[in-house]
Design a protein around this nucleic acid. Structure first.
Length: 900
DNA sequence: AGGTCTAGGGAG
DNA sequence: CTACTCCCTAGACCTT
């Protein structure tokens, strides 16, 4: 039996200067509130610091020390002590109790003493612990604490992550730790209103202490002080100096009535900590909390054991059970990209609450696992049977992995990632572990580190016993989460959206990813070589203009050259320094004739396209010569898809070079790419949703919408609108659904704020329905807490009630935009279902490859091109009956550029 | 060497 | 603060 209590010499007590950190955290972290408006910046900073320090110091004992009416006792010595301190800011006061709560849920004892400061509490405990043989670590950033440093007591500054021992004090101060109080008394403290001896600064104080050792000796041998002025000053400030030393000296003899055994470190109360952090919206910190040690009694723990399926008979009985229940939850074990990764094993949860793990490609098992062909044969029909509801987490990935073994998954129904997303699309992640923690109050067992970290052993090198439980438990967690999520979806009116839109879309996205798009690597290479030359030339041009070589990619270096060496005016500042962005460079080039700025703009444009696309895309081409992006169906706050690895939704188009890059996206031999995109879809939706008669009529008349808007704004005939007027109108049309302000419009158009205001006012006068819609949307969102699309997709909008004006206003703009952008996303998703169904129905070979928000890119055999163009237009335009027509532009060609 | 943050910029 | 929604790159900075 191992003795779990550490040996005496290894007992470490960490004492936190809580009060000190509260103020530091408050000032270090910009104002922050929860979505309900509760200020939390100091709480957050404090909590972070504590967690970090605990991790770093790994103490065996711990306490948080607070001030409690901290001036009272010292003001008995000197009524002026801290008399100039203002009351804490009003948004800090409510944070004190919250910080005590944090200490409470983290199981860290809070200590204080009436009338005394945290310093004294710490001093007292430090002495007590030292006497009992502890190592003491005082967590503080306050220099006053140096006075209690000795061989057993060290300071730790969590911000700098530095410890301070005796030698460090000597090095920093030039005196011994026990002389620190004498030093502080001599030099005083303006902040705390501790009087100093005039004429005595740091240097003199240290010199005096070297000569006399301490204040008392100094005062008893004043005649030995050489400098007459200093001697006189000390003479006349005798009393205040003695008082000062009393003020700065910690009281180390407080009757705290605490035994060190009471301070043994305990694990946080996982449940309460999670609840509190959730309430405070400290989502990042939630992850750092250790596993919950006390599961809630009303929830059964996730299955702890699982059956490893190694025979065909066992597999068959699993299949039979799933078929009988018409449902099964599956979590695949695989490594790498789902469209290329072999299935290593499959975690299975059945509705009866049992789980299995089916190993398939575990090296060690060899022949003692079900052979892949047998697995495929046994599972094929079950997986392809849409009547058997499939559950899991990220069923698109499951679909792709299964497809690698020729298996088709139908009946995707309980994808908990997708369901959770629909409930709250603003959430960054819908990780299974988080959902299980929040909704099941259960921690998922970790995967072996070598699996999780993707390094070391391959997954297939693990024995099934190492991973079986982990995957089975994941399946079980998903199975249990689904009904709860569906219940909430029903309550929110979101279930239909899930059933009829998102879930049917899932297999289509899987097919699109699997299909990929062909890239002409040679063509891209040719462009890259050419651009390489141009980039180098521009780089040289920049260096010449600067007069020396520097790193063009480094904004600090660039700022140095522009603003210090070339003395150009700083037009805009960012968080970290003067800005060097496009807008600024443009001005510097235009208005200040900067050659460097001009060359840099061109350099940036070229190098961006080169590094992001030309150099990167070829490495992402799979063995089949095609690029397989990943679509994220549970990513955006508005309901759009997103794309990554690579992002094919931001391939350039606006510049000539950009268009050339699109020329490298090509159709396979004998095929063409058909591009079909919605024209002005968001503006049309704005017209429909806002029910604005003027805008609706404009679309019904199929007018040039920007010219029409210009005509409305400027009160002229649409035919006589000039280019400038149209440009203004176009910017307004685009910006209005984003909550465009007069300020924004003026900077974008380079017009005065007055005329921008005028333009917006005229717009709203002509399109009165739009103003009404914008106002109603925000007002309703404030009341109900969310905004929604035509099809009921919701986005929760907590920030609308934020006390931070900037945050609240940003939320208003997002609230205005979401119903428009989100409805457009809904329409496109519906269109994708419709196109897919039509292609199948007509038995066409054409395949949808890409979706870029308002565009679909389809690869069609030459013979099908015309039919596919017509089909795409028909499907996309008829996806909804609105008060305005949906217009679809379509084109075809051998490359993506040519299809436009 | 590896992770995270920031600035900047590509798309709709 | 100042136009919404994303993802990716490079450099800076910090940690292992």
């Amino acid at each position: 039996m191992a003795d779990t209590s550490p040996p005496r010499t290894e007992r470490r007590l960490a004492l936190f200067d809580a009060s000190g950190f509260i103020f530091r955290a408050y000032h270090a972290i910009p104002p922050l509130t929860t979505s309900k408006g509760v200020p939390t910046n100091a709480v957050l900073g404090f909590t972070r610091m504590v967690l970090k320090a605990l991790q770093e110091l790994k103490p065996t004992h711990v306490a948080l020390a607070f001030d409690k009416s901290g001036r009272v006792e010292r003001q008995k010595i000197d009524p002026q002590y801290k008399a100039n301190r203002k009351a804490p800011p009003e948004d800090l006061t409510p944070q004190f109790p919250l910080i005590r709560k944090v200490g409470d849920v983290l199981n860290l004892p809070s200590l204080d003493a009436e009338g005394w400061e945290a310093d004294d509490v710490i001093g007292t405990l430090a002495m007590q612990a030292k006497a009992e043989g502890f190592q003491v670590l005082v967590v503080t950033s306050d220099k006053d604490f140096m006075q209690i440093v000795d061989e057993d007591i060290t300071l730790f500054d969590p911000q700098k992550n530095k410890r301070m021992a005796v030698a460090d004090v000597q090095e920093k101060m030039g005196i011994l730790p026990r002389q620190v109080r004498d030093f502080l008394a001599l030099v005083g403290d303006a902040v705390d209103n501790v009087a100093k001896v005039p004429g005595v600064g740091d240097k003199t104080a240290v010199e005096l202490l070297h000569q006399f050792g301490d204040v008392e000796t100094l005062l008893s041998r004043l005649e030995e002080v050489k400098k007459p002025k200093i001697r006189a000053a000390l003479e006349s400030h005798r009393d205040s100096l003695v008082r000062a030393k009393q003020l700065v000296t910690f009281n180390t003899t407080l009757p705290l009535g605490v035994k060190l055994d009471d301070l043994v470190r305990k694990a946080p109360d996982g449940t309460r900590a999670r609840d509190l952090f959730t309430e405070l919206e400290f989502f990042a910190l939630l992850r750092d909390l250790p596993a919950e040690e006390t599961p809630r009694p009303d929830v059964a723990p996730l299955v702890a054991t699982t059956t490893v399926v190694t025979t065909e008979a066992e597999l068959q009985s699993l299949v039979d059970a799933a078929r009988a229940a018409q449902a099964v939850t599956l979590v695949p074990a695989f490594e790498g990209m789902p469209f290329a990764a072999p299935l290593v094993g499959l975690g299975v949860a059945l509705p009866d609450g049992t789980t299995r793990y089916v190993p398939l490609r575990h090296q060690q098992l060899g022949a003692s696992q079900v052979p892949v062909p047998a697995f495929v044969a046994a599972m094929k029909d079950l997986l392809a049977d849409a009547g058997v509801k499939k559950g899991g987490h990220d069923l698109k990935a499951l679909t792709l992995v299964l497809a690698n073994d020729g298996l088709t998954l139908e009946g995707a129904h309980d994808d908990v990632e997708l369901l959770s997303y629909l409930l709250n699309p603003s959430r960054r992640e819908h990780a299974l572990a988080d959902l299980a923690r929040e909704r099941l109050r259960s921690e998922l067992p970790a995967l072996p580190a070598s699996v999780e970290g993707k390094k070391g052993r391959a997954l297939s090198d693990h024995g099934p016993e190492e991973v079986a439980a982990a995957y089975a438990v994941r399946a079980d967690a998903a199975r249990r989460l689904a009904p709860e999520l569906w219940r909430e979806l029903e309550l929110g009116g979101l279930a239909e959206l899930a059933r009829t839109l998102e879930l049917p879309l899932l297999p289509i996205l899987a097919r699109m990813e699997r299909e990929g798009v062909k890239l002409d690597v040679k063509e891209l290479g040719r462009i890259s070589e050419r651009v390489d030359v141009e980039v180098k030339a521009k780089e040289a041009e920049c260096h010449t203009a600067a007069g020396h070589v520097f790193n063009l990619g480094s904004n600090p270096q660039l700022a140095q050259v522009l603003y210090e060496e070339q003395k150009l005016p700083i037009l805009k500042r960012g968080k970290t320094g003067p800005s060097t962005d496009q807008e600024v460079l443009e001005k510097l080039a235009e208005e200040h004739g900067s050659v460097l700025a001009r060359a840099l703009i061109e350099y940036r444009g070229l190098s961006k396209l080169k590094s992001t696309y030309l150099d990167t895309l070829p490495s992402l081409v799979a063995k089949d010569g095609r690029i397989h992006t990943t679509y994220h169906q549970a990513a955006t706050a508005t309901g759009r898809l997103s794309s990554s690895d690579p992002n094919l939704q931001n391939i350039p188009i606006r510049t000539e070079l950009g268009r050339e890059i699109r020329r490298a996206f090509v159709a396979d031999a004998g095929h063409q790419l058909v591009s079909a995109d919605y024209s002005q879809v968001e503006l049309r939706l704005l017209a429909h949703i806002a029910e604005d008669p003027v805008l609706i009529q404009a679309f019904l008349d199929d007018e040039d919408i920007h010219s029409r808007t210009a005509a409305e704004i400027f009160g002229v005939d649409p035919k006589t609108v000039d280019r400038e007027q149209r440009r203004v109108a176009k910017t307004v049309n685009f910006g209005i659904a984003y909550g465009l302000s007069a300020h924004g419009l003026s900077t974008r158009l380079g017009i005065s704020q007055e005329s921008a205001r005028d333009v917006i006012e005229r717009y709203f006068t002509r399109y009165a329905g739009i103003r009404q819609y914008l106002e109603d949307t925000v007002e309703k969102a404030r009341k109900v807490g969310y905004v929604e699309t035509l099809y009921g997709r919701r986005r929760l909008m907590g920030d609308l009630l934020s006390k931070n004006r900037g945050v609240a206003q940003a939320a208003e703009r997002a609230a205005i935009n979401m119903p428009i952008q989100g409805t457009a996303a809904d329409l496109m998703k519906k269109a994708m279902l419709s196109v897919d169904a039509a292609l199948r129905e007509q038995k066409l070979k054409a395949r949808v490859l890409l979706q870029v928000h308002d565009e679909l890119l389809i690869e069609a055999p030459d013979a099908e091109v015309e039919a596919v163009k017509a089909l795409a237009v028909r499907c996309m335009a008829s996806v909804a009956e609105l008060k305005v027509p949906l217009k679809v532009d379509v084109g075809a060609g051998t490359s993506w550029a040519d299809a436009h």
